[in-house]
Write a protein that binds this DNA or RNA. Structure first.
Lengths: 341, 341
DNA sequence: TTGTATGCGTTATCAT
DNA sequence: ATGATAACGCATACAA
């Protein structure tokens, strides 16, 4: 078998507890013995067993990452890799590990989270998405299990939960206002699954902006899709097929990309015939032709902030929940133009 | 504290070992007591502690996933989310968890892997990429630690390692041959970091195909980038700037996407002025305008196969290494046309 | 079929 | 400052 703390202890002629103290950099240890122990550790190439440590300390030093069910949100969405990169960067600094959970259905996701919690597989959880009536949030709150939500919590008392979010009512409004300033009066909005809180917030902001300009909210200018790949195309086509179709469309980058192609097939030109504003500012919106105006939401930053918030919570579990709103920014490119009928 | 196996044992008036056996579905347990124990488990809402289990059984039931350093391969590459989805699907069936490691530099990646192994944090590892002179493969081989490589191992004896791969010499050749059949004689190849084995294999296949057609291999038609975002654009521009520039380009989907835009800026048309063949067939190549001909490599399948191979290896560690080659397929779309000078 | 006892590799609590 | 020793929660060899 592999070398354990006992081997180190006997090699350095001390007790295991002493070795443990050296490992923990305990101050009350003589420089003398510390040195001897370290030498033994090096000589034997000893490395503490993580599982045994976890059991004794009751800490796994692991964070559970919960992805949305792949049935709904395509893994193709660059949001997740990027936010995980942010989380990972921060977690790494404190030697925390990342445990990833990915399931097909919402039900399976819930079960996996339940297992993580009940089996004490992780110390805390980051939910990478927020849904309306989210069982996960309720469950974790109820279990008093440390977690951070990425997105706005759709619960009765949001201040009870630690979360990181963009102000998506404002991103929705900003996209819309920008287009109305360009004299657009018929603006379509295409978003993913309607039970996503982010979709709801953006819709709300969109409606606010329209109301402010005394423009009507037309339901046939609104579409939600579930499957990003096929659904978004359908949504676009249906929105464009109504009488007096929109002169501008707002949607996520990934969707805009597909739209760009359909637009071309229809013989339309962007931005002359149709203006486009995207959310999220993935790399793709910069590379598209034409480059697409998009609202940057600082995904990496969302990740680092989430991890930071989680550490805060773990350090002092009695402290009251904190929230962070990451700023957004409209990145203007070449997909919008002034509308002249 | 939470409810343990002892609580269940006393509740059901049996020994802890009996409870443990029921949990393990041991055959030598009377239906009677099994029932009583299960009731106690349900009543107390007992769930075995994963850490304690791991320590006693010396099994973590966790697989370590090793991503390439984010400094090199952008996380934006949809390959990773998709392959992880495949791995996850298979892992889920046997109740294995996924531990994710992501680092900035190659050095950090190595250190993280070392820690995973030494601290026994995972039972096995899947390397999601393969590099030339890969320290990781050598290290894991040397440590006799179970792992599966995604890609072709660049070691002296590949048959020593369990791996899943596409035949990338053939994908490289296929892309090239397809273009030569369309009468192209000047074909550019743009790939990412030159120390990636997949890039080397595709380059090899490309050269094979050219040789077969008695076409010269021109170094100025070849370009490698490290940063996908900016580097690939530079690579394309430099390849197109040579005397007698290529009439066709082969590259990864993500890169093709950027190329498509540059092509438009240059006033060229695809496929009339330039033909394009992509590798990997990400969703993006279908949505591009025009839709891009791409070689599908079944990324999801790569993931499931990797996990299956790993399970095989864990079940019988004495068995000799196995390899799986996942088939590829040319998906023809509208980015290629016959060349007529 | 079931119970007893020991081990898994640490940390933490008492002593000294 | 250091050493014994008891947890931590479960699995398992051995007994019965």
């Amino acid at each position: 078998m592999s070398v354990t703390i006992k081997d180190v202890a006997s090699e350095a002629k001390v007790a295991t507890s002493t070795v443990s103290r050296v490992l923990a950099n305990s101050p009350k240890i003589s420089a003398e013995t510390a040195k001897r122990v370290r030498k033994a550790i090096a000589d034997l190439n000893y490395h503490p067993n993580h599982t045994a440590r976890s059991l004794a300390s009751q800490l796994t030093k692991t964070i559970g990452l919960v992805m949305p069910s792949s049935a709904h949100v395509s893994f193709q969405n660059p949001f997740f890799p990027e936010v995980i990169r942010g989380i990972s960067t921060e977690a790494h600094k404190k030697n925390y590990g990342l445990y990833l959970t990915t399931s097909q259905t919402d039900e399976e996701v819930f079960e996996e989270v339940q297992r993580m919690v009940q089996e004490k597989r992780v110390d805390a959880i980051i939910l990478l998405f927020s849904l309306e009536n989210d069982r996960l949030v309720h469950y974790l709150l109820e279990q008093d299990f440390p977690f951070v939500l990425l997105g706005r919590p759709a619960v009765t008392n949001p201040k009870d939960v630690w979360y990181v979010n963009n102000d998506n009512v404002r991103t929705g409004r900003l996209a819309t206002e920008y287009l109305t300033l360009l004299k657009h009066e018929r603006i379509g909005l295409i978003l993913n699954r309607s039970d996503a809180v982010v979709s709801q917030d953006r819709t709300y902001g969109y409606k606010e902006a329209l109301a402010q300009m005394n423009l009507p909210v037309r339901d046939d200018y609104l579409a939600y899709y579930t499957d990003q790949h096929t659904g978004s195309q359908d949504a676009f086509i249906s929105v464009m097929s109504v009488p007096e179709p929109p002169t501008a469309i707002i949607a996520e980058d990934m969707v805009i990309f597909g739209i760009l192609r359909t637009v071309q097939e229809l013989g339309l030109r962007v931005p002359d015939d149709l203006s486009l504003v995207a959310f999220n500012n993935y790399m793709i919106s910069e590379l598209a032709s034409p480059p697409v105006t998009s609202i940057d939401i600082q995904i990496f930053e969302l990740g680092t902030q989430a991890m930071k918030l989680l550490f805060k919570q773990l350090e002092d579990s009695t402290s009251s929940p904190e929230q962070v709103i990451v700023p957004h920014q409209l990145i203007r490119r070449q997909s919008c133009s002034r509308w002249q009928k």
